[in-house]
Nucleic acid binder design. Structure first.
Length: 479
RNA sequence: CGGGGUGUAGCGCAGUUUGGUAGCGCGCUUGCUUCGGGAGCAAGAGGCCGGGAGUUCGAGUCUCCCCACUCCGACCA
């Protein structure tokens, strides 16, 4: 909040240096720690707990829709990776290779999975014979490795955690429906659980997944105006099935190729949370995934009855919420700052004066508003506060995106608005020609993020070449 | 992968120009006093100066080679 005094001095302000602000939060809020291997980070308990909560919610959604979890190996033989031409071309530049087992050189080198399409395909070829074997709705929670050149905590690490869904269906229609369904699951998760507004859309040909027929994505806008892809869902058609020889016998007794999808979300979401909701005092966590939803800070805890009351409240609340009572011997002021930095949505202060009056103080993280509430209906008061936090951070994020979404009809307009207002989402028309896509990127610095489902006819001409436009594209500088 | 910057105690830094055997602040430990927005005093602990080779009687400091972090590009969840 602009008028609030900055109370945590350890974090660089985002106006001063956004990149440093980001890494400061990652480290000071104890989300990650670097290791001696470039791009490989320790996700510390507080950061991992966020991921576990993300997993819990998503996994339940997947299972509700009939998906089953499986686990593929970590290694892919080179020959297997190479079966689908586009796929290998897309991933080969960034795979890590295992060449030795012990001291012996392997006959065929193995890549550490950058994604598992090939492994799923090999497996599907083995287990699918009949239409009765379809569909298979699989998902796995694993880590993958991509040998990135520049790395940043959560946003781009060489090893990252994710889930990858891989489904295989008898018909194209079914597979397309699955692709769309999962994109919607992702969008709903971002918006309803993480309070991150997203734009749903389709990737352009040049930007789609290696080996896919079509790629869909959700794009979120960060505080600094850069776009972040928060999730993707791909439709593969029968290309992989053909490359890997997956066939099934239909009811009509004909051999057919099945149709596939894949979709994924990663620990990058934690980066999205930081850069969507965080402020100069640190993290601001969406209540649904916050490891601690309510932190209880006893005041004058050495005085008789204070800790006992605080513990009583903790115990009472812990059946409904993730609660922590901090009874360490730090001063209350220190604790306020500490848990603000860690983004805990609601703080509960309780001291001798409160106890006497049968009340406590609730403070919401995103706006630091204090409310005195009676201890008699504490649970509902907290539910209200958590809902307030959700609504508050959602509105703020939507507002930011609104302020940073620009409609442009010419290249000069794009350059001008970016120079004046800073990075953001640029909506502009496109003719569909890849040359124009490249030229926009080259001249203005913003690349195509997606072709939003929510189309708007901004003009009838391509922003670049002036020829008749096919669709509106959302352009942005991206992470 | 190209161009810049940085690696000295857990964190932030000084010391490097001019080689002489390592310091400051915060944090940490113990004790007492404090406690409603990062408390005070006192006494302590903590370093193969990112790693390796070299020059030198002697290297945090000079030379070379690695590695990591970071920023700006290109590539990417």
């Amino acid at each position: 909040m602009a008028d609030q005094k900055k109370m945590v001095e350890e974090i660089t302000s985002m106006e001063e240096d956004f990149a440093k602000w980001y890494t400061d939060i990652c480290k000071k809020a104890e989300l990650v720690e670097y290791t001696s291997v470039k791009g490989c980070m320790v996700i510390r308990p507080y950061g991992y707990a966020i991921w576990e909560n993300i997993q819990k919610i998503l996994d339940a959604k997947f299972k509700e829709l009939g998906h089953e979890n499986v686990c593929m190996p970590m290694f892919i033989p080179e020959s297997l990776l190479q079966k689908e031409k586009d796929h290998v071309e897309g991933f080969a530049p960034e795979v890590a290779w295992v060449t030795h087992g012990g001291s012996e050189k392997l006959e065929e080198r193995l890549c550490v999975r950058p994604t598992s399409e090939t492994l799923f395909c090999e497996h599907y070829a083995n287990i699918i014979q009949s239409h009765r074997d379809l569909p298979k709705l699989y998902n796995q929670w694993v880590s993958v490795v991509r040998w990135e050149k520049t790395t940043r905590p959560f946003l781009r690490s060489r090893e990252f955690l994710w889930q990858e869904g891989h489904t295989i269906h008898a018909t194209a229609e079914e597979a397309i429906a699955e692709t769309e369904q999962m994109l919607n699951v992702y969008a709903d998760f971002c918006e309803q659980n993480l309070q991150i507004p997203v734009v749903k859309g389709q990737k352009t040909e040049s930007d789609k997944f290696a080996g896919a027929v079509s790629t869909y994505a959700i794009e979120a806008l960060m505080h600094d105006g850069k776009a972040l892809q928060a999730g993707t869902s791909h439709y593969f058609g029968d290309g992989f099935a053909k490359a890997f020889g997956i066939q099934y016998q239909s009811k009509e007794n004909k051999l057919e190729y099945p149709h596939q999808t894949s979709w994924g979300m990663t620990t990058r979401l934690i980066g999205a949370i930081i850069m969507t909701h965080g402020d100069n005092n640190g993290l601001v966590l969406p209540p649904d995934v916050a490891p601690i939803q309510v932190v209880i800070i006893p005041v004058a805890q050495h005085k008789e009855g204070v800790l006992e009351k605080a513990e009583e409240i903790r115990s009472q609340l812990s059946s409904s919420y993730r609660v922590k009572l901090d009874d360490s011997d730090q001063s209350p002021g220190w604790k306020y700052s500490e848990y603000e930095m860690k983004g805990v949505p609601v703080r509960l202060e309780i001291g001798p004066r409160d106890i006497e009056a049968g009340q406590c103080v609730l403070v919401t993280r995103h706006n630091r508003e204090k409310t005195v509430v009676s201890l008699d209906n504490l649970e509902s008061a907290i539910a209200e506060k958590l809902a307030e936090v959700k609504a508050g951070i959602w509105e703020k994020a939507v507002e930011n995106r609104k302020n940073r979404t620009y409609k442009c009809t010419t290249m000069d307009e794009i350059k001008q608005v970016l120079a004046e207002k800073g990075d953001g989402f640029v909506e502009a028309m496109w003719c569909g020609d890849e040359a124009c896509e490249d030229k926009v990127k080259e001249e203005t610095g913003v690349g195509s993020r997606c072709i939003p489902f929510a189309q708007e006819q901004i003009s009838d001409k391509c922003v670049c070449c002036g020829k008749p436009a096919k669709c509106m594209v959302m352009w942005a500088n991206a992470y």
